[in-house]
Design a protein around this nucleic acid. Structure first.
Length: 479
RNA sequence: CGGGGUGUGGCUCAGUUUGGCUAGAGCACCUGGUUUGGGACCAGGGGGUCGCAGGUUCGAAUCCUGUCACCCCGACCA
């Protein structure tokens, strides 16, 4: 027998090599292309369309809470970056510098923004004078640059797209409230739109943002059991307003420093979608974020009337959802595989036999279930199916997440889980950074967060040092 | 920054050990035809000067020197 012909470069299976699977999916689903700039990727139309949907939905939710969009410069003078000490120390190792303007060296070099706290602060100190000027709730959509040494598409690149919200408030209560509000907004977005369950919690001192008083995070669990920080919200208190001198006069004619927050989400979310929902055939997109929600694939499209009918069905679907017709001259088998690799939630198969019988076949991407459907009710059936898929994708992801959370009561148990069971580890913690460091060194596991909702008291002592422990922490290997 | 590896059509690679005729294959691409319910087939066609620079030689993808780039593994990170 002849050697089996390799028709398509297959996607490496997840179980064989998860990292390679990820790379294959990103490329085969046509989300990105590598560029000639190391560590920077080209986001192709299918990848960018996902980002646009994320932007639209997040932006809509932001504005419902009073957020206004602005745009800040992409360069930060070195002196400005250095105003807040922890902040510089955190970011200095990974900033890119502009040293020349044209042919002439600059008298002060400019960094390409790795984040814009300093610019917002510099701006706020000029525009905030009175309690009447507060709060300021600004956000910008932009890209930032961090000179990472190891890069991966969407998960870690030297330039990435994001939004960064920066707010200034009169009181500590208000800034805390906003910090939590945005974290919840992020969490709801992940769960409702991306069908991705998240753990909401607070970062430890060691893991919090450079310059923050408190960092809140949402942590998601990927299919391989590794955690991905999917969004963060920081309360700065007066850590930035003091060095930057952002003061207002309160109702009693007293000068006060403002309280600030910042919060961000990035194109990394696209990596999360891939690693939470994808399978060995490629991407699986939650319907609410999918650029194409349903694709119509004609069978024997050169036969009289087939293409016409397919295009009519597509047009009808297109009135209420994002629909596409694949009328390319590839074979149907090709189109099926292609639609699967791209993660399109529902495909409609339509051939001469169907047309004669007045029906079509609906196929779910997530389960591959085939459903016969009368052509008369195709719009309602597909719409229902999209809702079902969205709901079930979340439930499956949640079931996977919940079945990969393990409790450790002793260090032996902690070690055993870290080495053998991918997922979150729940354990008590004494609060000492030394214990956190030991876990990281021994097991390559970091504290993900101290959860808000899940503060069970599973043991009396820290498994590392044996001292009394009050806090429950989620630990895990992370991206 | 430390260790390992690779540079040959758009992609994946063979050829390099032992220098030798016109540099190969598969996939992709173009044209025509037959196909079409899970990555179709036939025929024809276009495209590379072997990462770059220098050297050795009658002759270099192949040997030597230098250089650049990228990938993988470890320390930093949305």
């Amino acid at each position: 027998m002849a050697q089996e012909k390799k028709l398509v470069e297959a996607i490496t299976s997840m179980s064989e090599d998860f990292a390679q699977w990820y790379t294959d999916v990103v490329v085969k689903a046509d989300l990105i292309a590598y560029s000639s700039v190391k560590g920077c990727m080209i986001i192709k139309p299918d990848g960018y369309a996902i980002w646009e949907n994320i932007q639209h939905e997040l932006d809509r939710r932001f504005k419902a809470t009073g957020v206004q969009n602005v745009y800040m410069p992409m360069f930060i003078p070195e002196s400005l970056l250095q105003v807040e000490k922890d902040h510089v120390e955190g970011f200095a190792p990974e900033v890119a510098w502009v040293t020349h303007g044209g042919l002439n060296p600059l008298q002060e070099r400019l960094c390409v923004r790795p984040t814009s706290e300093t610019l917002f602060c510099d701006f706020y100190k000029d525009i905030i004078h009175s309690h009447r000027d507060l709060p300021k709730v600004y956000n910008q959509w932009c890209s930032v640059v961090r000179w990472e040494k190891e890069t991966r598409p969407f998960l870690r690149s030297r330039e990435f797209l994001w939004q960064e919200g920066h707010t200034a408030h009169a009181t500590a209560e208000e800034s805390e409230e906003r910090t939590i509000q945005m974290l919840n907004l992020y969490a709801d977005f992940c769960e409702e739109v991306l069908a991705m369950p998240v753990v909401r919690g607070q970062k430890t001192e060691k893991e919090k943002f450079a310059g923050a008083e408190a960092t809140y995070t949402i942590e998601a669990l990927m299919h391989d059991g590794k955690a991905l920080q999917s969004g963060t919200s920081h309360n700065f208190g007066q850590n930035f307003s003091k060095p930057f001198g952002i003061q207002y006069t309160d109702k009693n004619n007293q000068l006060q420093y403002v309280h600030q927050t910042s919060w961000g989400m990035t194109t990394r979310l696209i990596g999360a979608i891939i690693m939470v929902h994808g399978d060995d055939s490629g991407l699986v997109l939650p319907p609410r974020i999918a650029p194409t929600q349903v694709i119509v694939i004609p069978i024997q499209q050169k036969k009289e009337g087939v293409l016409e009918k397919a295009s009519e069905v597509c047009e009808r679907l297109g009135k209420t959802m994002r629909a596409k017709l694949d009328d390319s001259d590839k074979s149907p088998g090709w189109k099926f595989s292609e639609a699967e690799m791209r993660g399109i939630p529902v495909r409609v198969e339509l051939g001469p036999k169907d047309i004669e019988a007045g029906k079509c076949v609906l196929v779910r991407r997530d389960t591959r279930e085939k459903i016969e459907c009368s052509l008369d009710e195709v719009e309602t059936r597909v719409a229902e199916l999209l809702e079902t898929i969205q709901k079930e994708m979340f439930e499956r992801a949640k079931a996977h997440r919940d079945s990969h959370i393990f409790d450790a009561h002793s260090y032996a148990e902690f070690t055993e889980i870290a080495n053998n069971k991918p997922g979150f580890i729940r354990a008590m913690w004494c609060g000492d950074e030394a214990c956190e460091n030991k876990i990281k060194e021994d097991l390559a596991v970091t504290s993900r967060c101290m959860p808000f909702n899940d503060q069970e008291h599973i043991s009396d002592v820290c498994p590392v040092c044996g001292k009394p422990a009050k806090k429950l922490v989620y630990w895990g290997k992370a991206y």
